[in-house]
Design a protein around this nucleic acid. Structure first.
Lengths: 247, 247
DNA sequence: CGACCGATTGACGACCATCAAAGGTAGTGG
DNA sequence: CCACTACCTTTGATGGTCGTCAATCGGTCG
């Protein structure tokens, strides 16, 4: 686990700023928001389908994921959750969770009471738009994944996924020298892209052989962003970032 | 096209009521909302990726869809939009559209100005939660489609899709005697499930042969809901309906 | 050191894609 | 009213991408 670059509140603010213009007053209010932290081991469920949480979970450190299972036990990873993300923000208005959220790596988590969020939004109504927008961006990412998993072949698909991870890590300051931490296993990447781990392995090898990525341990390096982006047919519009990412 | 069962405002209210408890006062306010109607031929784009609409589009009659294209022109249908749906509700807070919306059949549409919606929500703040919740349900459907398209085989997948359509049509009163209008072509269903039209055709034949569905023209009949539901592994939790659907 | 987890490799098979052509059906126009 | 056309559905043959099964290798941690 890397060291924390920000306090929980600072991270939340930084994240929201990537998609919403916050005033100084709003930032101050967000700085005062109560966030209770805790830690969790890798590969542990954080909340589960059917739960009715009274708080939202902010990823502070580590990777997490949103997933669902079919009746016969096949897992689809629906989203990767990176530092700054709030995977169950939806629970503010959908009382019963329709998803599972689990840690991929050991994670440091921040919990925000629904009540506190509602109070905050009452006093600063523009923040409603900020959080709403965040849930809309999440939805947009689901759509892009549908396109990616449904219409692109595995090679393109994985290139696209890596692009997304890199851009999203970059906005929270977790990319340095075209390198970033990517601790998801091939098994998890496979479940995110709807393929088998065996095939995932082979495609990753192809990407490496073609010089699109290189990796050592959990560290991924992208020597040629433009080439990877082109290979993955990656267009960042769907992330709705205020500032153009990377390129 | 079937006749309108409701006025545009009544349809909107009925739809919102399936996921949110409206007070009489709120209903009255919604009845007064200005909705401008228009018609559109089949297979026409309503709004396109890159647009920055100043209004939202309410489907009054007919089927529409949300879709995206890959660079090489492959189409993924991301959502079917049925009467009562507001496919671009997200444009309230995401200025630039990341999707295309098109009619499948000839459609009657209602347009609501963003400005009017914002004014309405200022005066009736609970309605913010209603519309926000609607966008969250849309997101939940995207997630279920990711699971469906990524992890279920084509037979199960299509059964699931038919279940969803039936339930969603039912809540707006468009299912009678286990029958409903399903005017999407096999080509469109294929693009929604990430398969080829040829294979879609064969799977539909299998479903018919097994007595799970029968159809005549655009009319689909489901003789045994429980069986179809089981085959499609369909659980309606993800639709977040206030009243339990059908079964 | 042993156990475990994840990455890798190989052989084989199946589901579904692709290509091509022929029926049906509805809408259009002469 | 019928011919023509366009679109959709259906069918057949073939092939490839990716899944399945199984074993090995390598690194990490107690």
């Amino acid at each position: 686990m890397t060291n924390l670059l920000y306090t929980p509140n600072q991270l939340l603010i930084r994240k929201l700023e990537t998609i919403f213009d916050l005033t100084d007053e709003e930032k101050k209010a967000l700085m005062a928001l109560r966030i209770q932290t805790s830690e969790i081991k890798k590969k542990r469920d954080i909340v589960s389908i059917g739960d009715s949480p009274f708080q939202c979970c902010l990823i502070l450190e580590g990777f997490a994921c949103v997933y669902k299972l079919t009746i016969d036990g096949k897992r689809q990873i629906l989203a990767l959750q990176l530092p700054g993300d709030i995977p169950d923000l939806q629970s503010l208005h959908l009382n019963m969770l329709d998803i599972n959220i689990a840690s991929i790596t050991p994670c440091k988590l921040g919990f925000i009471q629904h009540e506190d969020l509602h109070t905050l939004c009452e006093r600063y109504p523009r923040l409603i738009a900020a959080f709403w927008r965040e849930t809309l961006v999440q939805a947009s990412i689901f759509r892009e994944w549908l396109l990616n998993n449904g219409q692109r072949d595995s090679y393109t698909r994985i290139a696209h996924l890596i692009c997304e991870i890199m851009v999203r890590l970059n906005v929270v300051g977790l990319v340095h020298n075209s390198s970033f931490d990517m601790p998801a296993t091939q098994d998890e990447l496979a479940d995110a892209t709807g393929m088998t781990p065996v095939h995932m392995n082979r495609v990753l090898q192809a990407l490496r052989a073609n010089g699109l990525i290189s990796n050592h341990k959990n560290k991924v390096t992208v020597p040629n962003w433009d080439k990877l982006k082109e290979t993955g047919q990656f267009e960042s519009l769907y992330l709705h970032l205020l500032n153009k990412p990377i390129s």
